[in-house]
């Protein structure tokens, strides 16, 4: 649900004159709330920038977000980044009392 909340926050910021980019791991969650600009990374939620100490991937995702801040021409754009997570991963609803 944070994807919805953060999307709303980005929309408020953008309407108040601040450029925003959302880095999403929940594509459908982001697409429906429609932040002004989003990059989607098809990685597990919690790994938006990749694996621990994978500095190269972390920088690549961050730079892709920065690039979209410059290039986006219309509000609501969502760009699918090409990176592939090396292992299968599953839907995890969370919320368990851990």
């Amino acid at each position: 649900m944070d994807h919805q909340t953060v999307g709303l926050v980005c929309r408020v910021a953008e309407a108040a004159g601040i450029t925003t980019v959302c880095v999403s791991t929940g594509r459908d969650l982001t697409a429906q709330v429609k932040p002004p600009r989003s990059v989607f990374v098809n990685f597990p939620m919690g790994n938006a920038f990749g694996k621990p100490f994978d500095r190269k991937m972390q920088l690549a995702v961050l730079r892709a977000a920065l690039e979209l801040a410059v290039t986006a021409k219309e509000g609501g754009v969502l760009v699918d980044l090409p990176y592939v997570w090396p292992e299968p991963f599953q839907f995890n609803p969370g919320g368990a009392d851990t």
Partner: peptide, 30 residues
């Protein structure tokens, strides 16, 4: 309570961003 986000918490956050003269916000939901 999305209306509170839209009407109170997000605008309060944005006011702080303006104080810091932020040009670009990178937001990462989880």
């Amino acid at each position: 309570d999305r209306s509170k986000v839209l009407q109170e918490s997000a605008p309060a956050f944005v006011a702080e961003l303006h104080k810091d003269e932020v040009d670009l916000l990178i937001a990462v939901p989880a």
